[in-house]
Simulated scan of single mutants.
Amino acid sequence: MNRDGRLGVGVIGAGRVGPVLAAALAGAGHALVGITSGSDDDRVDAILPGVPVLDALEVVRRSELVVVAVPHDELPGLASGLAEVGAWQPGQLVLHPDPAYGTAVLAPAAARGAIPLAVHPAISFTGTSIDLRQLAAAYAAVTAPAAVLPIAQALAVEMGCEPVVVAEEDRPLYAEAIATATEFSRSIVRQSTGILAGIGVENPGGFLSALVRSAVDQALASGTAADADPPLS
Protein backbone atom coordinates (compact mmCIF):
# COMPACT_ATOMS: atom_id res chain seq x y z
CA MET A 1 0.00 0.00 0.00
CA ASN A 2 1.25 3.46 -0.85
CA ARG A 3 1.48 6.15 1.80
CA ASP A 4 -1.71 7.71 0.48
CA GLY A 5 -3.62 4.46 1.04
CA ARG A 6 -3.68 3.39 -2.60
CA LEU A 7 -3.59 -0.32 -3.34
CA GLY A 8 -2.26 -2.12 -6.37
CA VAL A 9 -5.37 -3.92 -7.64
CA GLY A 10 -5.37 -6.95 -9.91
CA VAL A 11 -8.34 -8.85 -11.31
CA ILE A 12 -8.69 -12.55 -12.02
CA GLY A 13 -11.74 -12.94 -14.24
CA ALA A 14 -12.60 -10.74 -17.21
CA GLY A 15 -16.35 -11.31 -17.28
CA ARG A 16 -18.97 -8.69 -16.50
CA VAL A 17 -18.19 -8.17 -12.81
CA GLY A 18 -14.43 -8.01 -12.30
CA PRO A 19 -13.63 -5.19 -14.75
CA VAL A 20 -16.45 -3.03 -13.37
CA LEU A 21 -15.29 -3.45 -9.78
CA ALA A 22 -11.75 -2.66 -10.89
CA ALA A 23 -12.94 0.50 -12.63
CA ALA A 24 -14.83 1.53 -9.50
CA LEU A 25 -11.76 1.00 -7.33
CA ALA A 26 -9.63 2.91 -9.82
CA GLY A 27 -12.13 5.75 -9.56
CA ALA A 28 -11.49 5.74 -5.81
CA GLY A 29 -7.77 6.24 -6.45
CA HIS A 30 -6.36 2.72 -6.46
CA ALA A 31 -3.85 1.62 -9.10
CA LEU A 32 -4.78 -1.17 -11.52
CA VAL A 33 -1.86 -3.51 -12.13
CA GLY A 34 -3.41 -6.14 -14.38
CA ILE A 35 -6.32 -8.35 -15.39
CA THR A 36 -6.54 -11.85 -16.83
CA SER A 37 -7.79 -12.37 -20.37
CA GLY A 38 -11.42 -13.28 -21.02
CA SER A 39 -13.87 -14.03 -23.78
CA ASP A 40 -14.48 -10.36 -24.62
CA ASP A 41 -11.22 -8.47 -24.24
CA ASP A 42 -12.50 -5.58 -26.39
CA ARG A 43 -15.32 -4.90 -23.92
CA VAL A 44 -12.90 -5.10 -21.01
CA ASP A 45 -10.53 -2.68 -22.74
CA ALA A 46 -13.42 -0.24 -23.18
CA ILE A 47 -13.92 0.01 -19.43
CA LEU A 48 -10.28 -0.56 -18.42
CA PRO A 49 -8.22 1.01 -21.21
CA GLY A 50 -4.54 0.28 -21.07
CA VAL A 51 -4.62 -2.14 -18.12
CA PRO A 52 -2.07 -4.94 -18.73
CA VAL A 53 -3.45 -8.38 -19.57
CA LEU A 54 -1.56 -10.93 -17.47
CA ASP A 55 -1.87 -14.54 -16.42
CA ALA A 56 -3.35 -15.30 -12.99
CA LEU A 57 0.00 -15.94 -11.31
CA GLU A 58 1.39 -12.60 -12.46
CA VAL A 59 -1.76 -10.77 -11.39
CA VAL A 60 -1.41 -12.22 -7.89
CA ARG A 61 2.33 -11.50 -7.77
CA ARG A 62 1.84 -7.81 -8.60
CA SER A 63 -1.27 -7.10 -6.51
CA GLU A 64 -1.93 -5.94 -2.98
CA LEU A 65 -5.66 -6.49 -3.58
CA VAL A 66 -6.75 -9.36 -5.82
CA VAL A 67 -10.35 -9.29 -7.03
CA VAL A 68 -11.29 -12.87 -7.92
CA ALA A 69 -14.41 -12.56 -10.12
CA VAL A 70 -14.76 -15.98 -11.70
CA PRO A 71 -17.84 -18.18 -12.15
CA HIS A 72 -19.24 -19.72 -8.96
CA ASP A 73 -18.12 -23.27 -9.70
CA GLU A 74 -14.56 -22.19 -10.51
CA LEU A 75 -13.84 -20.19 -7.37
CA PRO A 76 -12.95 -23.05 -4.95
CA GLY A 77 -10.56 -24.69 -7.39
CA LEU A 78 -8.89 -21.41 -8.29
CA ALA A 79 -8.33 -20.45 -4.65
CA SER A 80 -6.83 -23.83 -3.81
CA GLY A 81 -4.86 -24.10 -7.04
CA LEU A 82 -3.12 -20.79 -6.50
CA ALA A 83 -2.37 -21.81 -2.92
CA GLU A 84 -0.77 -25.04 -4.09
CA VAL A 85 1.71 -23.14 -6.26
CA GLY A 86 2.46 -20.67 -3.47
CA ALA A 87 0.93 -17.67 -5.22
CA TRP A 88 -0.92 -16.02 -2.32
CA GLN A 89 1.11 -13.60 -0.24
CA PRO A 90 0.95 -12.78 3.49
CA GLY A 91 -1.06 -9.61 4.12
CA GLN A 92 -2.49 -9.59 0.58
CA LEU A 93 -6.21 -8.75 0.32
CA VAL A 94 -8.23 -11.30 -1.64
CA LEU A 95 -11.80 -10.29 -2.47
CA HIS A 96 -14.49 -12.20 -4.31
CA PRO A 97 -17.96 -10.86 -5.32
CA ASP A 98 -19.85 -14.19 -5.43
CA PRO A 99 -23.18 -13.87 -3.57
CA ALA A 100 -23.31 -17.48 -2.36
CA TYR A 101 -19.86 -17.75 -0.78
CA GLY A 102 -18.55 -16.11 2.34
CA THR A 103 -14.84 -16.19 3.11
CA ALA A 104 -14.55 -19.94 3.80
CA VAL A 105 -14.04 -20.54 0.07
CA LEU A 106 -10.86 -18.45 0.36
CA ALA A 107 -9.46 -20.58 3.20
CA PRO A 108 -6.53 -21.80 1.05
CA ALA A 109 -5.48 -18.18 0.51
CA ALA A 110 -5.97 -17.36 4.19
CA ALA A 111 -3.80 -20.32 5.15
CA ARG A 112 -0.99 -18.64 3.20
CA GLY A 113 -1.47 -15.41 5.14
CA ALA A 114 -3.80 -13.57 2.75
CA ILE A 115 -6.81 -11.65 4.06
CA PRO A 116 -10.12 -13.05 2.75
CA LEU A 117 -13.03 -10.70 1.94
CA ALA A 118 -16.43 -11.33 0.34
CA VAL A 119 -18.17 -8.28 -1.12
CA HIS A 120 -21.19 -8.69 -3.40
CA PRO A 121 -22.72 -5.49 -4.86
CA ALA A 122 -26.44 -6.13 -5.31
CA ILE A 123 -26.86 -5.06 -8.92
CA SER A 124 -27.36 -6.85 -12.22
CA PHE A 125 -24.06 -6.32 -14.02
CA THR A 126 -23.88 -5.46 -17.72
CA GLY A 127 -20.08 -5.26 -17.84
CA THR A 128 -20.20 -1.64 -19.04
CA SER A 129 -19.79 1.82 -17.53
CA ILE A 130 -23.55 1.82 -16.85
CA ASP A 131 -22.77 -0.40 -13.87
CA LEU A 132 -20.66 2.31 -12.27
CA ARG A 133 -23.76 4.50 -11.97
CA GLN A 134 -25.73 1.58 -10.56
CA LEU A 135 -23.08 0.94 -7.93
CA ALA A 136 -23.54 4.47 -6.63
CA ALA A 137 -27.13 3.62 -5.68
CA ALA A 138 -26.54 0.04 -4.53
CA TYR A 139 -25.96 -1.92 -1.36
CA ALA A 140 -23.25 -4.56 -1.01
CA ALA A 141 -23.30 -7.70 1.12
CA VAL A 142 -20.05 -7.81 3.09
CA THR A 143 -18.60 -10.86 4.86
CA ALA A 144 -15.17 -10.99 6.48
CA PRO A 145 -13.42 -12.04 9.69
CA ALA A 146 -14.25 -9.55 12.45
CA ALA A 147 -10.74 -8.12 12.62
CA VAL A 148 -10.76 -7.12 8.95
CA LEU A 149 -14.47 -6.40 8.47
CA PRO A 150 -13.80 -2.63 8.37
CA ILE A 151 -11.50 -3.20 5.39
CA ALA A 152 -14.24 -5.01 3.47
CA GLN A 153 -16.74 -2.29 4.38
CA ALA A 154 -14.36 0.44 3.27
CA LEU A 155 -13.78 -1.26 -0.09
CA ALA A 156 -17.54 -1.55 -0.61
CA VAL A 157 -17.86 2.18 0.05
CA GLU A 158 -15.02 2.90 -2.38
CA MET A 159 -16.91 0.92 -5.02
CA GLY A 160 -19.82 3.30 -4.43
CA CYS A 161 -22.00 0.96 -2.37
CA GLU A 162 -23.50 1.03 1.11
CA PRO A 163 -22.15 -2.04 2.95
CA VAL A 164 -24.46 -4.43 4.79
CA VAL A 165 -22.87 -7.17 6.89
CA VAL A 166 -24.06 -10.71 6.07
CA ALA A 167 -22.87 -13.54 8.31
CA GLU A 168 -20.85 -16.38 6.81
CA GLU A 169 -23.58 -18.94 7.53
CA ASP A 170 -26.24 -16.70 5.93
CA ARG A 171 -24.57 -16.34 2.54
CA PRO A 172 -26.50 -19.24 0.92
CA LEU A 173 -29.84 -17.70 1.95
CA TYR A 174 -28.62 -14.30 0.81
CA ALA A 175 -27.74 -15.77 -2.59
CA GLU A 176 -31.18 -17.38 -2.80
CA ALA A 177 -32.84 -14.01 -2.18
CA ILE A 178 -30.71 -12.37 -4.88
CA ALA A 179 -31.38 -15.14 -7.39
CA THR A 180 -35.12 -15.11 -6.69
CA ALA A 181 -35.42 -11.36 -7.18
CA THR A 182 -33.30 -11.39 -10.33
CA GLU A 183 -34.70 -14.42 -12.13
CA PHE A 184 -38.33 -13.81 -11.17
CA SER A 185 -38.17 -10.21 -12.38
CA ARG A 186 -36.63 -11.22 -15.70
CA SER A 187 -39.10 -14.06 -16.21
CA ILE A 188 -42.17 -11.93 -15.52
CA VAL A 189 -40.98 -9.10 -17.79
CA ARG A 190 -40.19 -11.55 -20.62
CA GLN A 191 -43.63 -13.15 -20.27
CA SER A 192 -45.46 -9.81 -20.21
CA THR A 193 -43.57 -8.30 -23.15
CA GLY A 194 -44.19 -11.49 -25.12
CA ILE A 195 -47.93 -11.24 -24.57
CA LEU A 196 -48.01 -7.58 -25.61
CA ALA A 197 -45.91 -8.27 -28.70
CA GLY A 198 -48.32 -11.06 -29.57
CA ILE A 199 -51.28 -8.66 -29.68
CA GLY A 200 -49.38 -6.14 -31.80
CA VAL A 201 -48.12 -3.66 -29.22
CA GLU A 202 -45.01 -1.97 -30.58
CA ASN A 203 -42.03 -1.62 -28.22
CA PRO A 204 -43.59 -3.69 -25.42
CA GLY A 205 -40.57 -3.13 -23.20
CA GLY A 206 -41.00 0.63 -23.36
CA PHE A 207 -44.75 0.27 -22.86
CA LEU A 208 -44.23 -1.63 -19.60
CA SER A 209 -41.27 0.37 -18.34
CA ALA A 210 -43.10 2.89 -16.14
CA LEU A 211 -45.57 0.27 -14.89
CA VAL A 212 -42.90 -2.24 -13.89
CA ARG A 213 -40.67 0.35 -12.25
CA SER A 214 -43.53 1.85 -10.23
CA ALA A 215 -44.83 -1.57 -9.18
CA VAL A 216 -41.37 -2.67 -8.06
CA ASP A 217 -40.77 0.61 -6.25
CA GLN A 218 -44.06 0.19 -4.37
CA ALA A 219 -43.21 -3.41 -3.42
CA LEU A 220 -39.75 -2.40 -2.23
CA ALA A 221 -41.11 0.50 -0.21
CA SER A 222 -43.72 -1.64 1.51
CA GLY A 223 -41.40 -4.57 2.05
CA THR A 224 -44.02 -7.10 1.08
CA ALA A 225 -46.19 -7.67 -1.97
CA ALA A 226 -49.21 -8.19 0.29
CA ASP A 227 -49.18 -4.50 1.22
CA ALA A 228 -49.18 -3.27 -2.37
CA ASP A 229 -52.31 -1.87 -3.98
CA PRO A 230 -54.25 -4.40 -6.10
CA PRO A 231 -54.28 -3.88 -9.87
CA LEU A 232 -57.12 -1.90 -11.38
CA SER A 233 -59.87 -4.12 -12.78
Rank of each mutant, 00 (worst) to 15 (best):
S37Q: 14
D73K: 10
A111D: 14
G91Q: 03
S185Y: 13
P76R: 05
I130R: 15
Q89P: 00
L220Y: 04
G50V: 02
P52S: 09
S222V: 05
D73R: 14
D42L: 11
S222Y: 12
V189H: 14
G205I: 02
A46C: 03
G102D: 11
I188L: 15
V189S: 06
P145A: 12
L173S: 12
L211H: 03
G50P: 05
G34H: 12
L82F: 06
A152E: 08
A56M: 09
Q218N: 15
G15D: 11
A122D: 05
E202T: 10
A31G: 10
L106R: 05
A154C: 01
I178Y: 10
A225K: 00
N2D: 13
G198V: 04
V11S: 00
E168V: 04
D41R: 11
I188D: 03
A226W: 06
E183N: 15
V189P: 03
M159G: 05
G102L: 05
E169V: 12
V189R: 14
S187F: 10
A100M: 09
E169P: 00
A138G: 06
V20A: 01
A22F: 04
D217W: 00
I47P: 02
E74N: 07
D55K: 07
A138V: 08
A22M: 10
L117T: 03
N2T: 09
L220G: 04
R133F: 03
P204G: 08
L208M: 13
T182E: 13
L7H: 07
S187D: 11
G5I: 01
A152F: 10
V85S: 13
G18H: 02
V166M: 08
A23F: 11
G223L: 05
A110S: 15
V189G: 01
A136F: 01
A26K: 04
D45V: 04
P90I: 06
T103I: 12
A28G: 04
T36I: 07
V166S: 07
G200Y: 13
D170T: 03
T180I: 09
L149H: 03
P204D: 13
R186H: 11
V165I: 11
V20Q: 01
S37L: 06
